[in-house]
Computed example of a mutant assay.
Amino acid sequence: MIRALLVLLAALIALPALAQDTMPPAPYAYTQLEDPALEARAAALMHTLRCLKCQSQSIADSDAPMAGDMRHQVRSRILAGESPEEIRAWLIARYGDYVSYEPRVSTTTWPLFVIPALVILIAAGVLLRRLGRRRGGAGGEEA
């Protein structure tokens, strides 16, 4: 009896994870737009958006179901007349700053831009201080 309950519980837990892959792809996931100009705008945008499942590929290059859904959203919204920047803003609001390969300085991303500059300044300061001590020490011994 307990074994049957455990199997049932395991099946219920695994069911949502399997649901995404069994659904058919969205209509514009693998179908280009008929208007070449609109498709070019969509493709340009898709190359600047990161697949959240693959993380190393853009949604244009990824075969993950989630990337297909995101391509569908981009193409559908381009057809509806939205600009690529409006679509990017919507995707960032929905998935976070990580979805964009072109991050903007904001309240959540400013450390990504400031910390490397601070590390470089600190390293330069340490190097200059050490070089200054050597020059000062060597000059004092010669005199």
Rank of each mutant, 00 (worst) to 15 (best):
T31Q: 12
Q57N: 04
L79Q: 14
P103D: 08
V105W: 14
A42P: 01
A93W: 06
A124I: 14
A64E: 15
A80E: 08
L118F: 13
L38C: 09
D63T: 12
I13G: 05
R94H: 05
R75A: 08
R88E: 12
S58D: 01
G68I: 13
L33T: 00
A17M: 03
S76E: 12
A117E: 07
Q73N: 14
Q73D: 15
Q55Y: 02
R71S: 14
E39Q: 15
V7T: 13
A138C: 00
G136N: 04
G125A: 15
I122Y: 11
I120Y: 08
L33W: 01
M46V: 05
S62P: 04
A60P: 00
I2L: 13
E86N: 09
G81I: 01
S106E: 10
P24S: 13
L121I: 14
V126E: 02
R94S: 10
S62T: 05
A93I: 00
A37C: 03
V119K: 11
T48K: 11
T107R: 13
V105I: 15
R88F: 00
I2Y: 04
R104G: 02
A80F: 11
F113G: 11
D21H: 07
H72Q: 09
A29M: 07
A19C: 02
P103K: 12
A17C: 01
A44I: 05
E141M: 10
K53C: 07
H72C: 14
L9W: 06
P84K: 06
H47M: 08
L12S: 06
W90P: 00
V7P: 06
E141K: 12
I87W: 07
V105R: 14
L15K: 02
P84C: 07
R135G: 04
A43I: 10
P84V: 05
A138W: 02
M70T: 13
P103R: 11
S56F: 03
R104W: 09
D69W: 15
